[in-house]
Computed example of a mutant assay.
Amino acid sequence: MRLPIPRCDNLMTSTQQKQGIYYALAAFIMWGLAPIYFKLIDSIGALEILAHRVVWSFVFIMIIIAIKKNWHKVQSIFKQPKLLLMLLLTSTLLGFNWGLFIWAVNSGHMLDASLGYYINPLFNVLLGILFLGERLRLFQGVAVGLAALGVIIQLVSFGSFPVIALGLATSFAIYGLLRKKMAVESLPGLLLESLVLVPFALVYWFFYVDSASADLTVNNWQLNILLISAGIVTTLPLLCFTAAAKRLQYSTLGFFQYIGPSLMFCLAVMFYGETVGVDRLVTFGFIWSALALYTWDAIRSSKTKKKSN
Rank of each mutant, 00 (worst) to 15 (best):
S302C: 03
L216C: 03
I49Y: 00
G32T: 11
Y37H: 15
V54C: 09
K79A: 14
I65W: 02
A34F: 06
G260Y: 04
S76K: 12
L166C: 08
S157T: 10
S211I: 04
K303D: 07
N219E: 10
T283G: 03
I67W: 09
F271G: 05
F131R: 00
K39V: 08
Y294W: 09
T304E: 13
S302F: 06
M264S: 08
I174V: 15
K82S: 12
L202N: 09
T252L: 08
T92C: 13
L138P: 01
L127F: 08
Y175L: 13
V269E: 00
Q17Y: 04
I152S: 11
F256S: 03
P199T: 09
K180T: 02
K180N: 07
V198K: 06
L236Q: 05
E274R: 01
L248I: 11
A46D: 10
C8G: 06
Y294D: 07
R7M: 12
M270R: 04
V125M: 07
V54M: 12
R53M: 08
K39E: 12
W71S: 10
Y250V: 14
F58C: 13
I29T: 15
V55F: 14
C8P: 08
V54G: 07
G189F: 03
A212L: 09
Q249N: 13
F158E: 04
S171N: 05
V218Y: 06
G133R: 01
V144P: 01
S186N: 12
Y118H: 09
V196P: 01
D215Q: 14
I49N: 02
I36G: 01
W103A: 13
